[in-house]
């Protein structure tokens, strides 16, 4: 467990030192969401209807942009080999890195989401469900993304490959994330959608660290 805590602390320290990373993710999130009113027009009712979808899609893309730094720096400076050779299960180390990644991307995104909801004139009553849905959904994004990031280490055109590998797998999170908010706005229960988000999270919590660990072993072989 100490290795786990060490990896989390180290990655957080690195992320905080280059403060740019987390800030850039949030900045991208807000900027990309800001583009839609220019594209579809400023009509408040239309924007309110689009709000949930825009928040989720831009959050997916923001997470996608941040995936590269998950393993690439460690891979290039050789510290990934040390992590792979370290005693204890590698999947636990992957989980630690994913946790650090989520703390520096998912969490800031959740904090920034109400701002976009406000700009999009979304009903305030849906804000708690929005936060809860993102709290359940964004860890799955980090977990799935870790698999994509690990698989493309050392690949030609790794940067363009990751979206192709990861975005199709993000679709379920997008569907239930938006559906939870839409249900709340329609006066229905968001519970089933939130439960599905939780189920997807649990599945990925098991699958993703194993797959990413296998991929990392291949990368340093």
């Amino acid at each position: 467990m100490s290795l786990f805590a060490n990896v989390v602390a180290r990655d957080l320290r690195l992320a905080l030192r280059q403060r740019g990373d987390a800030v850039m993710v949030v900045l991208f999130f807000v900027l990309a969401a800001m583009l839609f009113p220019f594209a579809v027009g400023p009509e408040p009712n239309l924007l309110a209807r689009l709000a949930a979808g825009v928040i989720w899609v831009t959050a997916l893309l923001a997470v996608l942009l941040s995936l590269e730094r998950l393993f690439l720096a460690d891979f290039e400076d050789g510290s990934l080999e040390l992590l792979v050779l370290a005693p204890g299960p590698l999947s636990l180390t992957v989980l630690a890195k994913v946790l650090a990644h989520w703390l520096t991307t998912g969490l800031p995104l959740i904090a920034a989401a109400p701002l976009i909801a406000l700009l999009y004139n979304m009903d305030v009553s849906a804000l708690p469900v929005l936060a809860l849905a993102m709290l359940l959904g964004t860890p799955s994004l980090s977990l799935t993304g870790a698999v994509g990031a690990a698989l493309t280490l050392g690949a030609r055109r790794g940067g363009v490959l990751v979206p192709l590998l990861v975005l199709p797998l993000y679709i379920p999170v997008l569907i239930f994330g938006v559906a939870a908010i839409d249900a709340t706005l329609a006066g229905l229960s968001a519970r089933p959608h939130l439960l599905f988000l939780a189920a997807i999270f649990l599945v990925m919590l098991v699958v993703a660290p194993l797959a990413a660990a296998a991929a990392l072993r291949q990368a340093v072989e």
């Binding site: 679709i171 559906a179 699958v207």
Partner: peptide, 15 residues
């Protein structure tokens, strides 16, 4: 990983 996700994707798209 895709194979594990195919039923999840199928189910969510149906939903």
């Amino acid at each position: 990983v895709g194979f594990v996700n195919v039923p999840i994707i199928k189910f969510s798209v149906d939903w």
